[in-house]
Design a binder for these strands. Structure first.
Length: 582
RNA sequence: GCCGAAGUAGCUCAGAGGUAGAGCAGCUCACUCGUAAUGAGCAGGUCGGGGGUUCAAUUCCCCCCUUCGGCUCCA
């Protein structure tokens, strides 16, 4: 049962959805008034507002928005009743056919009920399940936001329509609040912060989707890698390293050439074909196969910060979140069927611990057997059962994506939620029955017979590039001390303290702190400002007084001040934060 | 890949058929300064790349590349 206040929230949300849905119809009505010959497709409310898809030959641009919005405002003022009517399917079909609304006809044909509901406002009638507001006069404030192409029914084989996005709210204040929120989100954009904090760049001279890490970005990445290596060693993983290119025959054997070729790059050496790896599993399989394995050896957990190259379509590249070369915290675990439950539990605990350290909440999904699959039904059912049991056993909620598993096995996807509620796919755990089969992997069981191991593919952070991008936005560039590329910046007030702060910097660096020095001949307020802009956690100020007392004054990025603290105590404080990952 | 928009100094942006401008950053000088921008001066650009139209193109046209907003796909 929902709590009373939740019910209220649900009601408010439901109302907002109706408002937006009606605004979407209003926009369609305005567009049809203004642009004769336009055909309408679908126009739902969405999380951030609404959209409507149109088929119109010249298409629309944002220049058309003012005109459309003006007409919408007129229609609101006219306070036109929005009338619902149930009609027979055949009648609706005839009506939309006559009107030349081919998309509506297609939609109605797919409806099984004998009757469909229509909503009419003046000269505009739309097929719609509803509900809607009672009249256009009840519509609040709205704003058209962007145009975009969208395939009919989301299928890239279909015609591309023009989609107009907009948003709507009951009043101006809530619209303003939303637009302000959008601005805040822009300020957190990892591409913007990546530039401002000088973390990374991508260059069209080098190539699209290829990341160049600058010193601070590379340091951040190094800190994550260091974290990963320690955590994996702690959990019984072994490090392995494989090559970036493997003979094409390997990729044919594994099925990648057949199923993943479009995403791969190829090259030729001395007339032999090679494929650049899009995944790390094959080398790990070679390690497994390098000697005979006993049931006592399992599970074997091979870990690699493996860099892979994938040919992503040009239109999907996006900062660090979607690139063409990236490094996964990848592991392949070879184990017996009877170990599957415990091992997946281990991984889930691993994921949980890591998410907690970075202060992420997360959600889980199980993806089950697709229509096209390899392996036996029995294996699939068993594995799906195990995945469910593990999640049930933890008492954590999860969704099921029927038929969305990989062709070689079912999987658990973990979607993390960042500081402002957005979801990102990072960790995933995939069962694989296919590769052990294709590479004829086996172990010798207690009865002396050869048995086939199960293979798990899993990543925890996912791709370092994507994870770093998410981290930047999650923290808004204000990394916790242990992850800050620069933890401390020391500022002198006059030249007099310069040699002193230099030796202080050296002392801190030798204790493992990451320290910068600002000895520019500038006012303190400028140095503080620059330190704040660079989002450095600790700004250490040294003037005449501090030098005499061998203390420092520390301005803390996230608020507050450490007045006249001993250098030694400050160093210990930062060291502890490094250790505790704070 | 598809639809739409954009690309001007290191960054953020203005400009216009007659070969470009601001702020910040950079450099030089003065100021030696106590918690979010001291002042003055200097320097900085084949106006994304390639073709075309024109007496003349950074501006108009075509192609390409890249980026942005979406669609589709995904770590």
């Amino acid at each position: 049962m929902a709590e009373p206040h939740e019910e209220k929230e649900d009601q408010a949300e439901a109302h907002l959805n109706i408002l937006r849905h009606s605004t979407s119809h209003l926009m369609a009505q305005a567009v049809k008034d203004l642009f004769p010959g336009v055909k309408v497709a679908i126009g739902p409310s969405i999380e951030t507002g609404f959209y409507y898809d149109f088929d119109y030959e010249p298409g629309f641009t944002e220049d058309d928005f003012a005109k459309i919005e003006a007409r919408m405002t007129e229609l609101v003022k006219m306070d036109i009743p929005i009338v619902r009517k149930m009609v027979k399917k055949e009648d609706a079909l005839e009506m939309f056919r006559k009107a030349g609304e081919a998309y509506k006809v297609e939609l109605i044909e797919a409806i099984e009920d004998p009757e469909v509901s229509l909503y009419t406002q003046d000269n505009f009638t739309d097929l719609c399940r509803g509900p809607h507001l009672a009249s256009t006069g009840q519509i609040g404030v709205f704003k058209l936001l962007s145009v975009a192409g969208a395939y009919w029914r989301g299928d890239e084989k279909n015609k591309m329509l023009t989609r107009i996005y907009g948003t709507a709210f009951p009043n101006q204040d809530s619209l303003d609040a939303y637009l302000k929120f959008v601005e805040e989100v822009k300020k957190r954009d990892h591409r913007r912060l990546g530039k401002e904090l000088d973390l990374f760049s991508v260059s069209d001279e080098v190539g699209a989707g290829l990341v160049i890490y600058h010193p601070n970005g590379a340091l951040l990445r190094y800190l994550l890698e260091d974290f990963e290596r320690k955590e994996h060693l702690k959990r019984g993983y072994q490090f392995v390293v494989g090559p970036h290119i493997l003979k094409l025959d390997m990729w044919k054997k594994s099925g990648h050439y057949e199923n993943y070729r479009d995403n791969m790059y190829f090259t030729k050496i001395d007339d032999v074909d090679y494929g650049i790896k899009p995944m790390n599993c094959l080398s790990h399989i070679m390690v497994y196969r390098s000697t005979i394995r006993s049931y006592r050896d399992l599970p074997l957990r091979y870990f690699e910060l493996g860099t892979v190259c994938r040919h992503e379509k040009s239109g999907v590249l996006h900062g660090l979140l979607r690139v063409r070369e990236f490094t996964q915290d990848d592991a392949h675990i070879f184990l017996r069927q009877d170990q599957l439950h415990q091992e997946i539990l281990n991984i889930m605990e691993f994921v949980h611990d890591v998410m907690e350290i970075f202060d992420f909440k997360y959600e889980m999904e199980i993806s089950t057997r697709p229509d096209k699959y390899i392996g036996t039904l029995e294996d699939w059912n068993k594995a799906e059962q195990v995945l469910k049991e593990v999640l049930d056993g933890q008492g954590l909620p999860y969704d099921i994506n029927e038929g969305d598993g990989a062709f070689y096995g079912p999987k658990i996807d973990i979607k993390l939620k960042d500081a402002i509620g957005r979801k990102w796919q990072c960790a995933t755990i995939q069962c694989d029955f296919a590769l052990p089969e294709r590479f004829d992997l086996y172990y010798v069981d207690s009865d002396g017979k050869r048995k086939r191991p199960v293979m798990l593919h899993r990543v925890v952070l996912g791709a370092l590039e994507r994870f770093i991008g998410v981290l930047i936005e999650h923290y808004g560039g204000r990394f916790p001390v242990w992850l800050s590329p620069v933890q401390v910046i020391i500022m002198n007030i006059t030249d007099e303290q310069e040699p002193y702060v230099r030796s202080m910097r050296d002392a801190m660096v030798s204790e493992g702190l990451r320290v910068e020095l600002d000895t520019r001949n500038e006012k303190l307020s400028l140095k503080i400002r620059d330190g704040m802009v660079k989002k450095i956690p600790y700004m250490v100020v040294v003037g005449k007084k501090e030098m005499a007392n061998e203390t420092i004054s520390v301005r803390v990025r996230d608020g507050g001040e450490l007045k006249d603290i001993a250098v030694r105590d400050f160093i210990e404080r930062v060291k502890e934060e490094n250790l505790l990952r704070r």
